[in-house]
């Protein structure tokens, strides 16, 4: 690709990648397989369908939660943040 290389941030760490390519693909190609964790089980999740259907690649992008990484093109100075799984579900009976 002849796309312009731009600076972006993943979980606060500086990175560089091709502008205009969806961030999920950029991260996959850079070896970042894990894009998040299942909120119920904590199991790692990554790019899967690549066309916005499965919602497994959700990142917080520039402060907005639940953006599908496979649909959002990389732009200069973008802040990508993997969403930490919420505290483990207790599902305990209330006595």
């Amino acid at each position: 690709m002849s796309a312009e290389t731009v600076r972006f941030w993943l979980d606060g760490a500086e990175r560089r990648g091709p502008a205009g390519v969806p961030v999920g693909f950029v991260l996959y190609a850079q070896g970042e397989r894990i894009l998040g964790w299942n909120e119920a089980t904590g199991a790692p999740r990554g790019l899967y369908c690549g066309i916005g259907h499965c919602f497994e690649c959700r990142l917080t992008i520039d402060g907005v939660r639940d953006q599908r990484a496979c649909l959002v093109p990389l732009a200069a100075e973008m802040q990508l943040t993997r969403q930490a799984p919420p505290p483990a579900l207790t599902f305990q009976e209330v006595p």
Partner: peptide, 10 residues
Amino acid sequence: TTKGPRFGDV
């Protein structure tokens, strides 16, 4: 909702 922040398990 998507799986995400939760607001208690009750």
